[in-house]
Write a protein that binds this DNA or RNA. Structure first.
Length: 492
RNA sequence: GGCGCGUUGGUGAAGCGGCUUAACACACCGCCCUCUCAAGGCGGCAUUCACGGGUUCGAAUCCCGUACGCGUCACCA
């Protein structure tokens, strides 16, 4: 049978990481089957919680991640509409609820919410467990319908069998059994005529021929209730794949309320969608091979529901950062340059070769946003503390530096070819000639043309970026800086 | 409180009764490479799998209990 999965978010805000991971797993489960279908359904039955623009965020996020759905509100499909509020209009849920009543799986209820709430609170105060025993269950359908005809407000509640147990199998948690007595008679149709999530979900999953239900494990406890509904209708029960939560720390899930990063926040911070997806795939799932870098397509191949873990995984920004760096480093230089140029431009106004700049930055940047901060020295150069020339490991100090710089100046003045290759051959001859170590020449040179203790790239790469004129200008400045100090020292 | 689920290092995790004196990766710490910083290479980092019992010749792996954590018990999804 063709696998069909769905991602069914409610448009109540932004896309958080846990949500996105659920979408990813649902996608992977479907695409594992070459014929598999992954669909998007918008669950907006809570009219009070709708947030403007939230559906667009869902579309945008899925699109930038490459989680392409085969059916959905925007592209249609054979089982639409794919927005629940539109489905409500056809009266579909109410019809099914009535059918369920006929089959004994549900009943009308006229109880006052306030009365139930009061009861609940009272018992909560005594620390006793609450289970509402609905007197309306005893009402006959005829009687109930008469009251409805008389204009009375009503809801439809699920009827739970007395006694007995309900079991179900979950692909990741195994078989779970609960006593029916612990299940409450939840509302299926609200007094505004809308279905609750719990009901709409079952009806839609069935009508949309969903074979594998992928969702967060917070639904584990209500799954038996869903199965009772499936059974009452005589429908096939889907395969369940409940995923453990993505945590912020030991005790809290990632959530917007805590101000935790959303997918878009992470993108804004300079993470690649591919890397984010790759990382969250690894939160709660482990490949069978010893490997961590996966494209979406590779994940489809490698994914196996059996290897989803059972305990919540803490989101580790440090590891994401590392993984993002791996993705960045793995790119070919041309695509990398294209990607990174806007970030280079943030820090560099000068007319320097962006490709060369990209090349020195690529092995060093783990996120795009740290790039501008690395490049300030290209546009800015001025006086600096000459004590920077003292470097024990490089065996340099101001005097060694001055000697090296003067020699380097001559070499750099007498060539017009500032390609890295040429500078490399020329400048590496120098230490030999002077009887010095490479570091005694190149370290001071790098410092002399940047004025910075650390820079991405070395003297050769940077001189090549700066070009002849700017390199010589800075070098001359540094030489005079050192000479001046020497002079002062002698005067004393 | 009832019910359900979970517990391998700072983090993600492998492990499914003997091959484990517990893989791999992030982080951390060393060393190497090296013109700085990175990247890269190499090595170190849990005598131990929440705790207590039990089963077994043998347990991180199976069973029971305890503790702790999470989830759920909404006219939210």
């Amino acid at each position: 049978m063709t696998i069909r999965t769905r991602f069914a978010p409610s448009p109540t805000g932004y896309m958080h990481i846990g949500n996105l991971r659920t979408a990813l797993y649902a996608y992977l489960v479907a695409k594992k089957d070459p014929e598999g279908v992954f669909l998007l359904r918008i669950e907006d039955t809570d009219q009070g919680r709708l947030v403007e623009g939230a559906t667009d965020i869902i579309y945008d996020t899925m699109k930038s991640c490459g989680l392409k759905h085969d059916e959905g509100p925007d592209i249609g499909g054979d089982y639409g509409p794919y927005v629940q509020s539109e489905r409500v209009k056809s009266g579909l849920y109410l019809d099914y609820a009535k059918r369920l009543i006929k089959r004994g799986g549900a009943h009308y209820c006229f109880c006052d919410q306030k009365v139930i709430d009061a009861q609940r609170e009272e018992l909560a105060g005594k620390n006793e467990s609450f289970k509402y025993v609905d007197p309306c269950r005893m009402l006959s359908v005829d009687e109930a319908e008469k009251r409805i005809a008389g204009g009375e407000k009503f809801v439809i509640r699920q009827s739970i069998p007395e006694g007995g147990t309900t079991s179900f199998n979950d692909e990741v948690f195994g078989t779970i059994t609960v006593d029916n007595d612990t299940l409450d008679e939840q509302i299926l149709i609200k007094s505004d005529g809308y279905p609750t999530y719990n009901f709409a979900n079952v009806i839609d999953d069935h009508l949309m021929r969903i074979t594998d239900v992928v969702r967060g494990m917070e639904y584990l406890s209500s799954t038996p209730k869903y199965n009772l509904i499936y059974d009452a209708f005589g429908w096939d029960i889907p395969r369940y794949i409940h995923c453990p939560p993505v945590m912020k720390d030991e005790h809290n899930k990632l959530s917007k309320r805590n101000g935790d990063a959303s997918f878009q926040d992470l993108v804004a911070k300079g993470y690649l969608p591919e890397a984010i997806l790759n990382y969250i795939a690894l939160l709660g799932w482990a490949p069978s091979e010893d490997r961590e870098i996966y494209t979406l397509d590779e994940l489809v191949q490698a994914f196996d529901v059996k290897r989803i873990g059972t305990n919540g995984a803490i989101f580790d920004p440090e590891k994401l950062t590392w993984l993002n760096g791996m993705w960045l480093r793995g790119m070919d230089l041309d695509s990398y340059t294209a990607l990174v140029t806007p970030y280079i431009d943030q820090a560099v106004k000068g007319d320097f070769d962006r490709r060369k700049i990209a090349a020195i930055v690529q092995p060093r940047a783990n996120t795009l946003c740290e790039i501008p901060g690395m490049l300030g020295f290209l546009d800015t150069f001025g006086a600096y503390d000459t004590s920077l020339y003292v470097h024990k490991k490089m065996k340099t100090n101001q005097e060694v530096a001055l000697e090296s710089l003067k020699a380097a100046y001559t070499v750099l003045e007498n060539t017009d070819d500032y390609s890295e290759e040429n500078l490399h051959t020329l400048l590496l001859e120098l230490p030999k000639k002077l009887g010095k170590k490479n570091g005694q020449v190149l370290f001071p040179l790098r410092l002399a043309i940047t004025g910075m203790q650390t820079t991405p790239g070395g003297a050769i790469e940077i001189a090549s970026i700066l070009g002849k004129e700017e390199t010589l200008r800075r070098l001359a400045f540094s030489i005079s800086l050192l000479e001046e100090e020497n002079g002062t020292a002698h005067d004393n």
